[in-house]
């Protein structure tokens, strides 16, 4: 199963309701976003004058750039398939890709708030909520982003942004299910905002007429993977060492010191 979202920009009227419903649902700080609507154009395209929207959110990528950079200590996490009850145990840091539903999630309890994941995302889909500080971890805040509203979906509800969309321009579902509405859109040509350098299996797809898609892809496709900070890469590579440190009961301290270093590095 791989959850994905199609946005039909032919239908979208750019009303921004999706962004506000999300803020209310998840108490997102007023100046931060889990999703957004950028207004594009009017501008000339090869297919004529166009004006459209870029309603963006976390794409829950197949190869998420945000996951491997997380420097939090690695733990064994057991995932359960909600349908079959099957379980799978993986070694994960504080952000991971769910092996059953394909969503990328954050373990808020263990997030150090370093912002490495936010830096790594070519879609700018993450932010660090500096007001959510985990005292025990000595964190700088907590990373946050779209969860595809998993707690709502698990209750049988639509994601908040999908529910409120008056145009029914947001379609959510399982891309692995060939009969789903999202798969139907994919067959019709819905495509992700991917480029030569940024091709990480985004599961956010867009569908529209030629001129609108031309404007959307020209303005909103990321062209370069964000340059990963050397220290962060180092941190990521040091993870096995972290595991040992954890066993020795040292991780909290080491982690905190390392994180402070990274923060300075960022500034």
């Amino acid at each position: 199963m791989q959850y994905g979202m199609v946005i039909d920009i032919k239908k979208c009227v750019g009303c921004h309701a999706c962004t506000i419903a999300c803020k209310a649902e998840w108490e997102v700080p007023a100046d931060k976003d889990r999703n957004w609507v950028h207004r594009l154009g009017p501008d000339n395209t090869p297919h004529g004058l166009a004006s459209t929207y870029y309603p963006g959110l976390c794409n829950h990528c197949n190869e998420p750039a945000c996951v491997p950079v997380c420097p939090a200590d690695i733990i064994q996490k057991t995932f359960t398939d909600k349908k079959s009850g099957k379980t799978k145990t993986l070694e994960v840091a504080a952000t991971y890709k769910d092996p059953f539903n394909g969503t990328v999630q954050i373990d808020k309890e263990r997030c150090l708030g370093c912002g490495a994941c936010a830096d790594a995302c070519p879609y700018n889909a993450r932010y660090v909520n500096e007001n959510q500080i985990n005292e025990e971890l000595g964190s700088e805040g907590t990373a946050d982003k779209c969860t595809y509203c998993m707690p709502r979906v698990e209750m049988g509800l639509e994601p908040a942004c999908v529910q409120t969309c008056l145009a029914r321009a947001r379609i959510f579902g399982d891309l692995d299910d060939p009969n789903s509405e999202v798969s139907r859109y994919k067959k019709m040509g819905a495509k992700s905002l991917s480029s030569v350098n940024v091709n990480i299996g985004s599961n956010g797809l867009y569908y529209g007429n030629k001129r609108d898609m031309a404007l959307l892809t020209a303005t909103s496709t990321p062209q370069v993977m964000p340059e990963a900070n050397m220290r962060r890469i180092l941190m990521a590579k040091m993870k096995p060492g972290f595991n040992k440190a954890k066993k020795l009961g040292m991780l909290g301290l080491v982690g905190a010191v390392a994180m402070k270093g990274m923060k300075e590095d960022k500034e």
């Binding site: 009303c15 921004h16 309701a17 962004t19 506000i20 419903a21 803020k23 209310a24 529910q163 409120t164 969309c165 008056l166």
Partner: peptide, 10 residues
């Protein structure tokens, strides 16, 4: 229906 606009949500 279940839809409201940005202002309604706000």
């Amino acid at each position: 229906g279940q839809s409201i606009c940005a202002r309604g949500n706000a």
